[in-house]
């Protein structure tokens, strides 16, 4: 691991042509790009404190004339948004814990232990990355229905406790841990489970952080499965609730939808801004190997 860092840094230092300062037009283009990408979010946040009347107004406004928080109080009072939020959080936390533990364990076995069928197993697991979600979700639904888990947290969580991405990430990272370190522990009489939990896992901080963030995010934003498994309002996750209110039969309350979207996006946004290094690092970790 320590041998990788210096080369990366020196590559960064020489990255791309640089001749003195950068051209102003480059900054201008980048600023226009950022405005186009971030603008809709600003419009959403401003829209969430407008009244429905103002949102339906022609021409549309940017700044709210009579800012109000009533959309947010309505989310809590009239719709059980606290419940949807809790459901999303429970499912995402459980799915993340499962992926971090089980994928790391298999990642360790694949990277540092030898057993028959290792290569084939890794190929099969990776191959499932290409299988579209729509292939498995019908058999999964039949299975979950027969286990009596439709409309339960367990039904929302179980099918996603493990995933190919986590195995790939952890195997790559654990592969970078020097064998000498593990052999030294073995000589001292440490068992494989002791080595894994006390030596390997503590060294996997960056990879675990990345896997945690990406898995939590994927689960928090997931839609198709909760849409099928959560049948009653008390089991809805946030995306399901919002999508069903947006496409429902009754007259949609646009302002409420904007506030709901803010509630889904805001926690992710805050986490992302503080931990953005891990998001991009995770992509680099898996992408450029």
């Amino acid at each position: 691991m320590t041998t990788v860092a210096p080369t990366r840094d020196s590559a960064t230092a020489h990255a791309g042509p640089r001749r003195g300062g950068s051209a102003w037009w480059l900054y201008l283009l980048l600023i226009i790009g950022v405005i186009l990408l971030v603008g809709p979010f600003i419009w959403m946040v401003l829209g969430s404190i407008k009244t429905t009347g103002e949102l339906r107004q022609v021409p549309p406004t940017w700044l709210p004339k009579n800012p109000t928080l009533s959309n947010y109080t309505d989310l809590l009072d009239r719709l059980s948004f606290a419940r949807f939020f809790l459901n999303s959080a429970i499912v995402a936390a459980a799915v993340t814990a499962g992926n971090v533990i089980f994928c790391s364990m298999l990642g360790y076995a694949l990277a540092k232990l030898s057993f028959p069928g290792k290569r084939i197993l890794f190929a099969i697991v990776l191959g499932t990355l290409m299988v579209p979600a729509i292939v498995t979700f019908m058999p999964l639904f039949v299975l979950v229905a027969n286990l009596g888990l439709v409309n339960t947290h367990a039904g929302l969580i179980l099918p996603f406790l493990v995933g190919a991405f986590g195995v790939f990430l952890m195997r790559q990272f654990i592969g970078g841990i020097p064998d000498e370190l593990l052999d030294a522990a073995r000589v001292d009489g440490a068992g494989e489970h002791y080595i894994f939990w006390r030596i390997v896992m503590p060294l996997c901080g960056p990879a675990i952080a990345t896997l945690t963030i990406l898995t939590f995010l994927g689960s928090w934003n997931s839609f198709l499965w909760p849409l099928v498994v959560a049948n009653t309002e008390d089991m809805y996750t946030l995306p399901v609730a919002i999508a069903l209110f947006a496409t429902g039969q009754q007259e949609t309350n646009v302002a409420l939808l904007m506030a709901g979207s803010v509630v889904v996006i805001l926690p992710v946004l805050i986490v992302f801004i503080f931990l953005q290094r891990y998001f991009t690092q995770g992509i680099a970790m898996t992408g450029i190997k």
Binding site: W43, M44, P239, M258, V264, I265, V268
Partner: peptide, 10 residues
């Protein structure tokens, strides 16, 4: 990083 459902609504 933001929910595709929320983005689609917006």
């Amino acid at each position: 990083v933001t929910s595709i459902v929320a983005i689609a609504v917006v």
